[in-house]
Design a protein around this nucleic acid. Sequence first.
DNA 1: TATTGTTATACTCTATAACTATA
DNA 2: TATAGTTATAGAGTATAACAATA
Lengths: 164, 164
Amino acid sequence: MIYSCLPSVNEYLQYMTDQGGERRDLAAMLAPLVRSLIAIELPVLAAHGISMWGYAVLSTLDDSPVRTQAALAEAIGADKTRIIGTLDELQQSGLISRDPDPDDRRARLLSITPNGRKARRSARAAIQANEDRLLAELSPADRRAFLRAAQTLSTLSPEDLAGS
Amino acid sequence: MIYSCLPSVNEYLQYMTDQGGERRDLAAMLAPLVRSLIAIELPVLAAHGISMWGYAVLSTLDDSPVRTQAALAEAIGADKTRIIGTLDELQQSGLISRDPDPDDRRARLLSITPNGRKARRSARAAIQANEDRLLAELSPADRRAFLRAAQTLSTLSPEDLAGS
DNA sequence: TATTGTTATACTCTATAACTATA
DNA sequence: TATAGTTATAGAGTATAACAATA
């Protein structure tokens, strides 16, 4: 049966019922939401002088430096050729440093600068302030559960998502 | 203050704490998830002989017919020129009907056919079975809250999302 | 003249492949 | 010969603008 992978049929029926018997596809619900969220983010980021990919790079590097551009590209789910322009801009703006590894001059050691960190955190504060306004639509309990669930699902590997 | 739009500062602090003090951006969490969900959907849809946009069209028309192509395009968040090829395919496959409105022969009355409805529901069952596997990662309470929250947020108008 | 749908054009984004430099 | 980064080319997807039919 198609629903045999569920923890229990009762569970399934319960949340189907919660949805009024017609559950919408997850992707169909979330895709427009994400599109809107990004559309809202763009002008905020522009006001901080950074692009969407630039923000993704800064966010990754704010957590920890990265040894190669290819690794950075993979971390943000992009092609290595796609982030080169972004890195050029960020470097020119002084938001990241990008130096040849003395031990292997083919690789580029990437890290965020103090200015980059400042820009990223300022942008994030503005973005999350917007998100807070949306999250205020939810009950406190649902809001916490939603953030927890989003966190859980977003950290699943592509393999987990695609199925064994 | 940047967080003044929150229901209460205490609430904010509470879910920040729940996230370990470092909440990730919503878009940054959800965008890769949605990308993966769509990547999983595509082969399922292909097996049913419909494209992603075709599925969006069928889903909209399954709820109710639409009087013009422009209205349909807006409903699925696409440009009116973008869905023409999709409508051609769906019509040729006999999944939708698309007839000039007798009262205004400029407009095209769009509706789903019985075969289209069958295809859509079959595809949806397969897609939701996949999603169920992912949702099984969540606790029952979180799963219900997540679906409820996604439903709530996804039905906000772009104006609500963008802010007053 | 305005509106619906269609076609044609141009533009953006992305991936693939070729190239340079280091190893 | 293999790898990291870069550049060049081509392809997909999309939007803008011009067009045809109907009102």
